[in-house]
Computed example of a mutant assay.
Amino acid sequence: MKIRKATIHEADLVSDLCFRSKAHWGYSEEFMEACRDDLTITANYIETSLVYVIEEDGGIKGFMGLERREDHILLGYLFIDPNAIGKGYGKAMWEHMTQVVKSLNMRTVLIHSDPYAEEFYLARGAVRIGEIESTVIPDRKLPLLRFERRG
């Protein structure tokens, strides 16, 4: 397993992974199409954010996107290829995220979580602090989580 910064040339590849990973949870085609823009990772996003991929055996198994804010880091994306879910890639990305946050001398990570991913984050020490409005579906609420880095 190797974690490295994504390149701008991988924008389409990680966008496709993001879409397939979200679809893994059984969302309808209509819902997925409504999410397409939010799940599209642009070259500009890769350039202006901290975007990492995890790869093994010559293929990308997952990626995450971190956005530095004034007083916290936003974990904007953390997606694992559906064929790689449950094989430790998400945990490895989480550990890498905590190291990046530490290297930036930050403590707080906010997470706009998919409902299906909330349990993953809670198991790693994040706590639910509220809900946020979906940017795609009116009146849909999403878990808002906070993780405080220790040490």
Rank of each mutant, 00 (worst) to 15 (best):
I73S: 12
K102M: 04
K91I: 05
L78G: 08
K102Q: 05
N105Q: 11
A84M: 11
K87W: 08
E95R: 14
H96I: 08
A84K: 10
L74T: 11
L104P: 07
T98Q: 01
M93I: 08
S103E: 07
H96D: 04
I80F: 07
I85W: 15
S103G: 03
P82S: 07
G88A: 06
Q99I: 02
Q99R: 00
V100W: 07
V101Y: 00
L74K: 14
I80A: 04
T98F: 01
Y89S: 01
A84R: 09
F79E: 10
G76D: 14
K87F: 08
Q99F: 03
A84I: 08
Q99T: 04
G76A: 15
I73E: 10
Y89L: 01
L78W: 04
Q99S: 05
H96A: 02
G88Q: 03
G90N: 04
K91R: 11
A84W: 08
D81K: 15
Y89G: 00
M106R: 10
M97Y: 00
L74A: 11
G76K: 14
D81F: 12
A84S: 13
G88V: 03
K87E: 12
G90I: 03
G76M: 13
G90F: 02
G90E: 05
E95C: 13
K102S: 03
L78Q: 08
I80S: 04
T98M: 01
T98S: 02
L104T: 10
H96T: 06
L75T: 10
G86D: 11
M93D: 04
W94D: 00
I80Y: 08
G86Q: 09
L78T: 10
E95M: 11
L74N: 13
H96L: 03
Q99G: 03
I80E: 02
L75H: 09
